[in-house]
């Protein structure tokens, strides 16, 4: 990446940024089929999450016609209701669409916070060493021991929040530890190499050298971890809504699963399956997309492949 010189114009700066962040990654992703599919899926969800709620009407109970209580399998997929309606006559597609922003917000927050804490703790422990390292590593390892999912469940009942952002932060509490430990060990291993010693002798700033040396390796690792944290957060949050331990304010995939689960059994099973399938597919497709996206991220931040396409 070229640095903008004092004399260089603003437009040149923009051009470089576009080249670095849009054109090159675009070229790389276009070459990688899995990554491309992943990106398309992820963007699709983003689109639904941002725009969908403005296009599709908010789901309301008893809107599917004809409504005849409380019979089951009343509303198979139709033209007006592509995914059919649930057992109280609420359009399923609308529920999925209105559940999307929450899931995405939770995933995004959890990904961001996981990454920030993980990178900060990992870099600090690795760079400072000594007491700081011992304490940070100790804390991280203790947190790793506490059963993650149960901890999140209890914390969510302690905090009792409706806010997707807070829920994301809650979930992140457990997920940063792995990232922190692996960043720490990468810093440690690079610190030991000879050229760092040599640079020290030459009076260079060690931190600068290490950062410049490890960042190319770390960036793709961090980006992939971000996605994995998001995948983990989707898993945990939908699961918690499914268990019914998180307070509900709006439509939500986990709640849909829970409703379907409660309706399942006996003669209702077939109808339940129909109602099940929508949230299940919504989750599975999103997770699949994100996992496929990691294949592209791996290459997007790989310096060798970057120079190959540019």
């Amino acid at each position: 990446m070229k640095m903008a010189q004092n004399g260089s114009s603003f437009s040149e700066l923009i051009r470089n940024a576009v080249e670095d962040w849009i054109i090159i990654p675009g070229k790389i992703i276009a070459r990688n089929k899995r990554g491309l599919v992943g990106l398309i899926i992820a963007l699709g969800y983003l689109f639904v999450g941002i725009v969908g709620t403005h296009i599709i009407q908010e789901p309301q109970s008893f809107t599917c016609i004809p409504y005849e209580p409380p019979s089951i399998l009343k509303w198979p997929p139709s033209f007006e209701h592509p995914l059919g309606c649930d057992y109280i006559g609420t359009d399923i597609l609308a529920q999925i669409v209105y559940g999307t922003p929450i899931v995405l917000q939770i995933a995004l927050t959890a990904g961001l916070i996981t990454t920030i804490i993980g990178v900060l703790v990992g870099l600090t422990a690795g760079f400072k060493g000594g007491m700081v390292d011992t304490v940070l590593t100790g804390i991280t390892q203790i947190i790793m021991t506490i059963p993650g999912l149960p901890l999140i469940i209890v914390l969510s009942t302690v905090i009792r929040t409706y806010q997707p952002w807070t829920i994301g932060a809650l979930i992140a509490i457990r997920w940063w530890t792995g990232l922190a430990m692996s960043i720490r060990s990468q810093v440690l291993s690079i610190k030991q190499r000879d050229f760092i010693e040599a640079a020290k002798v030459l009076g260079m700033k060690t931190h600068h050298i290490i950062l410049r040396e490890i960042m190319p390796n770390l960036i793709s690792y961090i980006a992939i971890n971000f996605v994995f944290a998001a995948v983990g957060a989707i898993y945990a949050s939908v699961g918690l809504y499914f268990l019914g331990v998180l307070p509900i304010s709006t439509y939500n995939w986990g709640v849909m699963l829970n409703m379907a689960y409660k309706q399942a059994g006996g003669g209702a099973s077939v109808a339940a399956l129909h109602y099940f399938l929508a949230p299940i597919l919504a989750i599975v497709l999103l997770q699949t997309g994100l996992i496929l996206l990691t294949y592209a991220l791996d290459e997007v931040f790989n310096p060798r492949i970057r120079t190959e396409v540019s």
């Binding site: 898993y235 499914f242 699963l257 379907a260 099940f276 989750i283 997770q287 996992i291």
Partner: peptide
């Protein structure tokens, strides 16, 4: 690997348990 186990469990429950 990224599919939640509760999703798998629910599908198994409906298909092999209830159906």
């Amino acid at each position: 690997r990224s599919i939640p186990e509760y999703v798998v469990a629910l599908v198994l429950l409906i298909v092999f348990g209830f159906h």
